[in-house]
């Protein structure tokens, strides 16, 4: 059976561009585009949830 890829959702209007998610993602899934974090490489996501847990602005949700 094929492994289901986690789904990462970023609410742009909540993101304040603090870089925490981008810096602490262990597989470099996210990057900054202007002042907002965006998903660059969704296939690399291992659903460790660190970005969701550490986002101070309630902007990221990861669904396993």
């Amino acid at each position: 059976m094929e492994k289901k890829q986690p789904e990462i959702k970023i609410i742009e209007k909540y993101c304040k561009g603090c870089h925490i998610c981008v810096e602490f993602c262990p597989t470099q899934v996210l990057e900054m585009r202007g002042f907002t974090a965006v998903v660059k490489n969704p296939d690399a996501c291992i659903a460790c949830m660190q970005c969701e847990l550490r986002c101070p602005d309630f902007a990221i949700s990861v669904t396993k």
Binding site: G17, P56, D57
Partner: peptide, 10 residues
């Protein structure tokens, strides 16, 4: 939301 805390505030 969004809340008033600064970018990066814990």
């Amino acid at each position: 939301l969004p809340h008033i805390w600064c970018p990066g505030c814990g």
